[in-house]
């Protein structure tokens, strides 16, 4: 039981990290209807620019500010030079354009900042908290708790921002109905630029967390792909959905990784590790059968 709890909590905490990436997807999808496949690559770019700036001698806080500037500029440039030119194209064309964007980033970022895997030190130690270890005998890393705290803070800030600021209201209006938002005088282009800026910021936070955890390396973009099943489970348009979906994926994949291979081994023999690699996708696939719009998504009605 204790072991189970440990696996479960570990999974939930790693799910927080998935949720961080998924959040960026949701923001852009809500505001502009673009499914941004490049979000994973943006996480990679953000982490690389922090590490790159620090290698040039900048302190951590300055590197983070610089990386934020880079991400914002990058987001605005994407909106201006790619997405604006694709207005009125079918969503699938926009999706493929963001795949192109992902490759663009994956080629450009290592060229500018170097491609060798590097560690990112945020000053948070990745070791079990002794108090919890003594009281319940469960290993929980301090770093994971900080990551969970950061995610909670980020979501709260975003929720407040969306709810109470002028820009936030405009964002929600645009998400609801582009035409109606335009007709009451909301500048659509500015709003999209802002959304891409915010998505860049979320990518930066995710990049910091992932980078500090696993090192800044190319594999970051693959890990970010795990955000896709998170979205399917949570729903494409829901911020709480991204969080819940992330937790579900994180917990289930870790449990599957621990408990499925022995079962399969006794059935077929051989070694069945690495279930983590596909489990979230297959889980999402089954989820699609039951509830295609996700847990918190809006039901989509087709009209001819």
């Amino acid at each position: 039981m204790q072991f189970f709890m440990e696996v479960l909590i570990g999974g939930l905490l790693s799910g927080v990290m998935y949720a961080l990436v998924a959040l960026g997807f949701v923001l852009i999808y809500k505001a502009s209807g673009v499914f941004n496949f490049a979000q994973g690559a943006m996480v990679y770019l953000a982490a690389l620019s922090v590490v790159g700036c620090m290698e040039k001698g900048a302190p951590l806080w300055l590197a983070i500010i610089l990386a934020f500037a880079i991400m914002t500029l990058f987001g605005i440039a994407t909106e201006k030079f790619v997405l604006r030119k694709l207005v009125n194209q079918p969503p699938i064309a926009l999706f493929m354009a963001t795949i192109g964007l992902a490759f663009f980033i994956e080629g450009l970022a290592p060229m500018v900042f170097g491609s060798a895997p590097r560690a990112l030190d945020l000053g948070i130690v990745d070791e079990p908290i002794p108090a919890i270890l003594d009281a319940w005998g469960i290993v929980i890393s301090k770093f994971d708790l900080v990551a969970a705290g950061v995610a909670a803070l980020l979501v709260t800030t975003l929720a407040l921002f969306f709810q109470y600021t002028r820009i936030g209201r405009a964002l929600r209006a645009v998400a609801d109905d582009h035409q109606a938002a335009l007709s009451i005088g909301i500048p659509l282009q500015h709003i999209w630029a802002i959304v891409w800026g915010i998505a860049g910021f979320v990518a930066l936070v995710a990049g910091l967390m992932w980078g500090a955890r696993n090192g800044v390396q190319f594999a970051l973009t693959f890990t970010a792909l795990k955000a896709l099943p998170v979205l399917i489970i949570g729903g494409f348009t829901s911020v709480p959905g991204a969080i819940v979906g992330g937790l579900l994926i994180g917990a289930s994949e870790k449990l599957a990784e621990i408990y499925l291979p022995p079962v399969m081994q006794s059935l077929f023999g051989g070694n069945f590790g690495g279930i983590e690699g596909w489990f979230p996708y297959v889980l999402a696939l089954f989820f699609l059968l039951v509830r295609p719009e996700g847990l918190f998504g809006e039901k989509h009605i087709d009209r001819v």
């Binding site: 795949i99 192109g100 663009f104 994956e106 080629g107």
Partner: peptide, 15 residues
Amino acid sequence: HIQILLFGTLIMFFL
């Protein structure tokens, strides 16, 4: 890297 970069650029360009 340039190859990946070019692929991405070309995809966006063609789309």
